[in-house]
Design a protein around this nucleic acid. Structure first.
Lengths: 195, 195
DNA sequence: TATTTGTTCGGACGTCCGTTCTAATTATAT
DNA sequence: ATATAATTAGAACGGACGTCCGAACAAATA
């Protein structure tokens, strides 16, 4: 029946959104399956029923976030007509993330650390890194030329990796540092440098 | 007596070095006090005797590393006579870390994630971030001038934060990515960009 | 030697964890 | 209505965890 099917989707979905909230607020190691079950208002065994185990559940949370935000990034870039401004708008997207969505950044930083020790997470994160740097690489256009004017022999991929590294590394300092405003200025600096 | 004092230092020291090995190999969440006690060949209760609890023990491990490597960095920079080369040699130091001391980088990445949830770790990491960016800031000399030739209004601190962010973020990609060599090229690129 | 002080040890406590199992309930199909 | 499958709830399992305690031991003092 329709009713039952939507109920089911609601249950699995509620688990997933609750898992995101718990994980982004407390981190993978500090969140138990019981926390999530209680938060979602479902029985503990439901988590295993829909997602098998904790690792797969977290993996699914990350997958959702990856899909959503990679699409957002691509959409943002496509809507930027001036090619030279595309990298700039990407930096702006990162600034928005820091300002308005620190939960997501915390989730990804925590996931990054987990990926050090859990092979399946590592593979998933590698995919994310490649997707992001590939997006950057495709939108370098003018920037790469400017860089290669003075330096030679560096691939677009290396440039993209460095740019993403700067954005990611600076975001970590913003999230964790004591004077976040000062660190945030570094993203403004990055935006101007890349224009 | 002398004998007894060195014995004591040996025990506490053995715990500390074993803790470093365990933590850099498996991460804070995956290492138990029993693992460390077994690895060091001492009784479990010795860990509490010398370091009170797990959090303090890890904190002490990090403190040691901070002292050691901050000193190494300062020494490296002081031995670089040409002022314009100092940032370059700092990037080289980071490259060495990626090549020869991935254990340490893993430890710091894991510690960074823990700092998201544990206040005392966060404070400690903030201190480390400030120390590193301050070192970079003091040694900018020519670089800042070059940047400020085209851009105005950005403090040396912002520049230093961005540089460290780039080094840290790129290192994370090197440690976790599947093609590490390609990511490593980004550090070479950073070195050339900053010269 | 007797006493005090600093170490070391093994073990136990209570708690929380992820996972699994069984029984009950509900929906679907015959 | 009855049988079959899907879904739910709750309890229980075995294990690992950080922490704590009291006894045993060694060293230093006097």
């Amino acid at each position: 029946m329709m009713q039952q099917k939507t109920e089911k989707e609601n249950t699995s979905e509620k688990i997933l959104t609750t898992a995101f909230e718990c994980l982004s607020a407390n981190g993978y190691a500090n969140v138990s399956m019981r926390n999530i079950a209680d938060g979602a208002g479902v029985a503990l065994s439901q988590l295993a029923y829909y997602y098998r185990n904790k690792e797969k559940l977290f993996s699914e949370v990350i997958n959702r976030m990856m899909d959503q935000y990679l699409n957002e990034i691509e959409a943002t870039l496509k809507s930027t007509v001036d090619e030279k401004e595309r990298i700039t708008s990407l930096v702006r997207y990162f600034k928005d993330l820091n300002r308005n969505n620190p939960k997501l950044l915390r989730l990804f930083i925590d996931f990054t650390a987990q990926a050090l020790w859990i092979p399946s997470f590592r593979q998933q994160l590698d995919h994310l890194f490649n997707a992001i740097t590939e997006i950057i690489r495709k939108n370098l256009s003018g920037n790469a030329a400017a860089i290669n004017k003075s330096l030679h022999g560096y691939s677009d991929k290396s440039i993209a990796t460095l740019i993403f590294g700067a954005l990611f590394g600076t975001s970590i300092q913003i999230i964790l540092g004591s004077d976040q405003d000062s660190a945030f200025e570094s993203l403004n600096l990055a935006e101007n440098l890349l224009y």
